[in-house]
Design a protein around this nucleic acid. Structure first.
Length: 459
RNA sequence: GGCCGAGUGGCAGAGUGGCCAUGCAGCGGAUUGCAAAUCCGCGUACGUCGGUUCGAUUCCGGCCUCGGCCUCCA
């Protein structure tokens, strides 16, 4: 079964064919670390994590790079206002980002290159572009010469005239062409800067990705991913630079872009202020529920985020974990797979379809007639969950986490349950019901099962 | 203004030229001392107007509405 991916560049689904199946390469634009990541920022991390997992299941080696932008004017502004060096800011938020992504079940990428560790590569690439006639120096800046690259605009599907007509930005006087973009810009003494052939300065936004890709992944990569809003100008510019720096070689074979998270149908963004940080959401719901919610819509579709989204995700996972809890004592068989889930993911990461298939296995597990069949289906469910990055906890852990975060007094609950068991033994159902009401008042639901009375938090 | 998406049952959200999505919620039944959990079953869903077709939610065209990019942005 081949892997089908939608390519933004060609605007269609294509069979994925890595240049070197023994070394598949993927690059995804990571965070600019100056603040807490919001749940919308987490979407590409989670989406491409699923793709990473799928690629790992198909190919012997996958090099997945997700960068950290640690030099940027927003970082400078934050550092200035707090009166600290930029490294203080970036170190702090890199760490928080990693912790947040970990809580969402995102595997660490193969490498996480930082922009500031690659200034030399950027300078070298800029010099190459100048030498090849694709860039020019002007007033301390180095600009990319857009008209020198005939293919400009193919990724975002717009031509230069449209861009100029729609431009809402004042054209700097030193630009030869209004579409030219900055590769290197001068820094004043109060700003971070590095020495370069064009004076002390700092890189433009787009060049870092191209330079790090060249260094770590090569001149042509298989997959380049990121959020939909990066198509223009960021990826368009990267494509132009990268192609021109390598004598016209293909820069990236497949371009993939995830859709936005919205709140009340409007794009979630820091500038609009309608954000929910991963950090605060993690105090309200398990990371796995957030992950499930993020994957509940196809990655190219918009996803409207609400408390209800998370609540539904959590309820659905509860059901799956309950099924797994029932078979906790059964050893799953080795080497199982569940083809329908994999097939759904191999069709351009159709996660909602994959989740429907998971629901099907959960039902099958609940209905399984024998321990042999349970061992088989449990293994299939776990394997399917692994591809999506869910259902890998011990069920007891999942339920305990919910109990803990609720802050309910477990000893008190246990005491009430014990009293109720006695009342039931005495067939004093009136007292038993009274005790259950008392337990329910704590927000706890109890279940009388064959193996004893269990409790959990109500939704 | 240019370019690009989207409109599916109470909610979320796939998909398809004619047949079941799935989950959550709801209703009925089995089960239970009562519940919960689980299982079984149920609901005449595809923005609108035309066209193509034996047949369209699915293809084509118009319209309406919403969102995104064109500036930092996942």
């Amino acid at each position: 079964m081949s892997l089908i991916l939608y390519n933004t560049l060609t605007r269609r689904k294509e069979a994925f064919a890595p240049r070197d199946p023994a070394r598949v390469t993927m690059y995804v634009c990571g965070p600019t670390v100056y603040n807490y990541a919001h749940i919308g920022n987490a979407r590409p991390a989670v989406v491409f994590d699923v793709l990473f997992r799928l690629l790992l299941a198909r190919y012997p080696q996958v090099i997945y790079a997700r960068n950290v932008t640690d030099v940027d004017d927003k970082i400078n502004t934050a550092a200035k206002s707090q009166g600290v060096p930029i490294k203080t800011i970036t170190d702090k938020y890199v760490e928080i980002y990693r912790a947040d992504m970990g809580a969402l079940g995102v595997l660490p990428p193969t490498i996480e290159p930082c922009a500031t560790d690659h200034i030399a590569q950027m300078i070298a690439m800029i010099a190459t572009l100048m030498k090849n006639g694709h860039a020019y120096a002007a007033e301390g800046h180095v600009m990319f010469d857009v008209p020198s690259f005939a293919g400009y605009g193919q990724l975002s599907g717009r031509n230069r005239d449209d861009m100029i007509a729609g431009a809402r930005v004042e054209v700097a006087p030193f630009k030869k062409d209004p579409a030219d973009f900055v590769l290197w810009k001068p820094s004043t003494p109060d700003l971070p800067g590095w020495d370069s052939p064009w004076g002390r300065g700092r890189p433009g936004w787009h060049i870092e990705c191209s330079a790090m890709i060249e260094k770590h992944l090569g001149e042509t990569i298989d997959i380049h991913g990121g959020g939909h809003d990066l198509i223009f100008p960021h990826h368009e510019n990267e494509l132009a630079q990268g192609t021109c720096a390598h004598g016209g070689k293909t820069y990236a074979q497949v371009w993939m872009h995830n859709g936005f998270l919205t709140m009340d149908r409007e794009k979630m963004s820091k500038s609009l202020g309608n954000i929910k940080t991963v950090h605060e959401l993690l105090s309200e719901a398990p990371g796995e529920a957030l992950r499930w919610a993020l994957l509940s819509a196809h990655y190219r579709q918009p996803l409207d985020w609400s408390d209800d989204t998370v609540a539904q995700a959590k309820t659905t996972l509860d059901r799956a974990y309950r099924a797994l809890e029932q078979v906790a004592h059964i050893q799953p068989v080795k080497g199982a797979e569940y083809a329908p889930v994999r097939a759904a993911l191999e069709d351009d990461l159709n996660t909602p379809k994959a989740m429907a298939e998971i629901a099907f296995i959960v039902g099958a597990l609940n209905n399984a007639p024998t321990d042999d069949s349970r061992a088989q289906i449990k293994a299939e469910l776990l394997a399917a969950g692994k591809l999506l990055g869910v259902l890998q906890q011990e069920p007891a852990e999942w339920f305990i986490a919910a109990k803990k975060s609720s802050g309910v007094d477990a000893a008190e609950v246990e005491r009430l349950i014990a009293a109720r068991i006695n009342a039931r033994k005495a067939r004093d159902f009136k007292e038993a019901d009274r005790l259950r009401d008392a337990i329910a008042a704590l927000g706890v639901v109890i279940e009388d099962r064959a193996d004893g009375t269990k409790w959990r938090m109500a939704e």
